[in-house]
Nucleic acid binder design. Structure first.
Lengths: 193, 193
DNA sequence: CGTCTATTTGAATGTACTCAAAAGCGGTGG
DNA sequence: CCACCGCTTTTGAGTACATTCAAATAGACG
């Protein structure tokens, strides 16, 4: 199992000794997803939380007209899941699928509870992870309220230049909340400047 | 000090004994805000986290054209603050002010660190608070991507009927991401149905 | 190579905004 | 307690940003 990255991720926030590290790793399970393969479908119960070792996932909904809306992308070193479904064991709101061949590490609800109980430091760890996620989501809400589509696009490519390289324009537009057609028009306009 | 509500808020997630309760309360400070008074201004350092005992606050930005954009409202039983500024002691992104005369309980960074150290259960408590906040922010992002202004308005008054009563249309429109003029038009249209 | 999906381009349309003016409402001071 | 002032809400007309529809082109994958 490829645990280097997740241990580095954890050590950024808390320190684990050898025993704790081994115990943590023993609770994880590897999973590989092919491009376009689903990790979760709307309506399923989300039974695990996921850490991305390699690849790229998207979390999204599909509206009544069949349009996809991406609430987040996930790449290496990120945690993803449908938190509400996971916590309440209710049907998932979101679809999660792979935009590239992807390798993840999973932890089940039972094992996560064991982890919190045996190594309470992980309460702190996930608190810190959630703080960061909360802050960046709040920024995104603020931008959706304050910015035009053009400003949101410029901000996105500035903030995530490496990510944008890996995504099709269709995916980017579904994240920004505009149509692919309009994004294409924006790009043409911007390239003329 | 009026600690009933905050103790009920805490007890929803963790159990405290007498000593822990007393210690927790000893770290808090009461503050009263008059309507229109600021709790935090953009550029200030946010030195405390806040629990609302009574009243109503809004967290917002002001764009280059002078328009306000509300990222969240806070009422009784909610925690509010500028988390990024609080954690990094950097200048605040947001303004926070009172829409009604408001009573809050504050905890400083130093005291919160003491609390985490002495009563590690609070790591868990704030993790759970953040999980809920994360989920509802993600829902809001998804709605901003998926819904028209009319749908967002209808959802808002359905989800927060009691809150909407307390807010002017101007505040609601700044939360929904539309102009007060357009909200007025929507309401007229909806009342005709 | 062929098929399927993504992207580009143009024209018509719709959603939401700007500007402007009037009406309503609430707070404050005389 | 009333009158006035300032801010919010309403209403209408014109405008801009973003979408829809449609068709052509480009690109990716088996």
């Amino acid at each position: 199992m490829d645990t280097d990255l997740i241990l580095k991720n954890v050590s950024r926030h808390i320190h684990l000794d050898k025993t704790e590290t081994d115990f943590f790793i023993s609770l994880l399970q590897t999973k590989n997803l092919k491009r376009k393969e689903f990790l979760l479908k709307q309506g399923d119960i989300c039974k695990t939380e996921h850490f991305i070792v390699k690849g790229c996932l998207r979390t999204y909904t599909v509206d009544n007209n069949g349009f996809e809306h991406i609430v987040m992308f996930g790449i290496e070193d990120w945690w993803v899941g449908d938190l509400y479904s996971f916590l309440t064991q209710s049907p998932a709101t979101y679809f999660i699928d792979a935009l590239e061949d992807t390798e993840i590490l999973q932890i089940s609800e039972v094992n996560l509870d064991k982890l919190y109980e045996s190594v309470p430091k992980f309460e702190r760890f996930f608190r810190l992870i959630l703080q960061n996620a909360f802050i960046s989501q709040q920024q995104r809400i603020n931008q959706n309220l304050s910015f035009t589509a053009e400003q949101r696009y410029l901000y996105f490519i500035k903030k995530y230049p490496q990510l944008e390289q890996r995504l099709s324009q269709k995916q980017v537009s579904a994240y920004l909340g505009i149509t692919p057609v309009f994004l294409s028009m924006l790009r043409r306009k911007l390239s003329k400047k």
